[in-house]
């Protein structure tokens, strides 16, 4: 079920996108906001092989979201290079960026679905990159796409809610619609930015499981930022820790024992202020 742990190859070999190549290749990425006053990312270098399940942990404000948003061009780097699926992002023109985005699903913390639209319309919007021209209403999409959207909704277990307005669903269900929208893109990479941070623990486990399972089925590379390490340990191949915009931990999960993980917490949170945020909860079933 789990991929073999692949040791990240050295940077520079990411151009070839053959199997075993790198899906994401980031080198010395620096991002500053507010005219250089805020340094959100400070020399981050990460390579992610195709098919890897990568989890990024770190405190709020450590740069997790900023990093992920660079990978589909929602942010542009101040310095350094970002290469995704063989495309150098800052060099892309608008249409090229759009066609790259079609290959990258993004799952947001706040779901970012259009609440007024029905579930099926939201899922269908994942196919916008494949068709031309604007669409208003589900019936304007071709039937084949509607069939496909239903299949994706079935995968996330919401086919019976297809024609219901999305804002009438619960938070976990809304996030599942958002996942279905991402899958509808037939992506090669899924970026998930704290996908379960606004859900309660039990639902978090279910949604995470669903996301990972779908991605493994489709052979999708996953980069996911998470608050709760215990949620990640069950399925992730590799763990990356960010603090103040710097990589402070980069390790394969296999063989990482409890003691080492505790070390990770201390490294991430030297002052101990946010200890609880990272504590592995004993009761949570998904921590095994």
């Amino acid at each position: 079920m789990k991929q073999d742990n692949i040791v990240p190859p050295d940077a520079g070999s990411g151009n070839a996108l053959a199997s075993g190549g790198n899906a994401v290749e980031v080198k010395d990425l620096v991002k500053t906001f507010d005219n250089g006053n805020v340094r959100a990312l400070d020399g981050v270098s990460i390579s992610v092989p195709v098919g890897q399940l990568l989890v990024i942990i770190g405190l709020s404000g450590s740069g997790k979201s900023t990093f992920l948003r660079h990978l589909n061009g929602l942010h542009l780097p101040t310095e350094g290079s970002v290469e995704v699926l063989g495309n150098v992002i800052p060099d892309l023109k608008r249409p090229e960026l759009r066609s790259l985005r079609r290959d990258i699903g993004f799952v947001f913390q706040q779901f970012n679905i259009v609440g007024r639209l029905t579930c099926i319309e939201n899922v269908l919007s994942g196919a916008l990159g494949r068709i031309r021209g604007p669409r208003i209403g589900a019936m304007m999409y071709p039937k084949s796409l509607r069939v496909e959207a239903f299949e994706q909704l079935e995968r996330v277990g919401l086919a019976d809610r297809a024609w219901q307005r999305t804002d009438t669903l619960s938070g976990g269900q809304q996030q599942r619609v958002a996942i279905a929208r991402s899958l509808m893109q037939k992506p090669k990479i899924v970026l998930a930015d704290e996908p379960v941070a606004s859900l309660d623990p039990e639902i978090s486990g279910q949604v995470m499981e669903l996301l990972v399972q779908c991605c493994i089925e489709d052979g999708i590379t996953v980069l996911c930022s998470l608050h709760q390490v215990d949620l990640a340990l069950g399925w992730a191949d590799r763990l990356i820790g960010l603090r103040d915009g710097k990589v402070v931990l980069d390790s394969l999960v296999k063989g990482l024992d409890q003691e080492e993980v505790m070390g990770v917490y201390r490294e991430l949170d030297p002052t101990g202020e946010k200890e609880n945020e990272y504590r592995v909860s004993e009761t949570d079933p998904s921590s095994q």
Partner: peptide, 25 residues
Amino acid sequence: TGPREGVTSTGAGPMQDLATGVWSQ
């Protein structure tokens, strides 16, 4: 802006973004 970002990150074009991301809201 959130839902709109969601639509843009699927690779939608400007008119598609206007229809699905902006107008529907």
